[in-house]
Simulated assay, not measured.
Amino acid sequence: MTEPHSAEQTVGELARELGITVRTLHHWDEIGLASPSGRSAAGYRLYTGADADRVRRVVAYREIGLGLDAIRAVLDDATTEITATLREQRAQLAERVEELLRLDDRLAAMAAAHERGIPLSADEQREIIGEDWDPDAARIAQAQWGGTVQWAQFAERAATRTRAEWQELSAAMSRLQLDLGDALARGVQPGSDEADALVDRHRETFSNFFPLTREMQVCLGRMFEQDAGFAAHYDGFGEGLSRWFRQIIDASARKHDIDPDAAIWQ
Rank of each mutant, 00 (worst) to 15 (best):
I64L: 11
G229R: 06
G221I: 02
H233I: 14
L176R: 04
I249M: 02
A42G: 14
L33H: 06
A60S: 14
F209P: 03
D132R: 09
L184G: 01
L18G: 00
F230L: 15
L33I: 05
G38M: 04
Q150I: 09
R72K: 11
N208E: 14
R62C: 06
C219D: 01
G117P: 01
R126F: 04
S207M: 09
W28G: 00
E168G: 09
E17G: 07
A232P: 04
A171V: 08
L198Y: 00
R175P: 05
A94E: 13
E124I: 10
G238V: 12
E30Y: 02
D105C: 05
G191Y: 00
F230W: 15
L33P: 00
Y44M: 07
D227N: 12
T10W: 08
C219E: 05
A113E: 00
M1T: 13
R254D: 04
W166Y: 10
A137K: 06
L212I: 04
D200G: 13
E225Y: 03
D136N: 11
Q142I: 13
S242P: 02
A108L: 08
R201K: 15
E63M: 10
R116H: 11
E8I: 07
A141Q: 06
A155D: 01
A41C: 10
Q125G: 05
R23C: 03
A138G: 06
S37M: 11
D193Q: 12
D193R: 13
P119K: 01
A94F: 10
A171R: 11
G38A: 11
E98Q: 14
Q142M: 15
I129H: 01
A34F: 03
A197V: 02
T148P: 12
A111M: 08
D136R: 12
D123E: 15
A91G: 09
S174T: 13
G12F: 13
A138H: 02
D261F: 03
G117K: 00
A185Y: 04
V149P: 04
A137R: 07
G238M: 07
A34W: 00
E194Y: 06
E63V: 08
H114K: 03
I20H: 06
A251Y: 01
G240C: 14
L100W: 06
L241A: 00
R56T: 03
L180I: 06
G240V: 11
F245I: 03
Q247F: 02
L33S: 06
D123K: 15
A52R: 05
K255I: 09
A231Y: 01
R161H: 04
D200E: 15
A172T: 14
I20S: 07
P119D: 04
D51P: 00
Q142V: 15
M110V: 10
N208F: 08
L107S: 13
T48C: 07
D257H: 15
E98N: 08
A197C: 10
H26V: 12
V74M: 05
D76T: 08
G38R: 01
R254P: 01
R16G: 12
H27I: 12
R186E: 14
A50P: 04
D196A: 08
T160N: 10
V218L: 04
T21E: 10
F230N: 08
R102A: 15
W133N: 06
N208W: 06
A183K: 00
D193Y: 05
E13H: 10
A262Y: 13
Q92V: 14
S242W: 02
H202G: 06
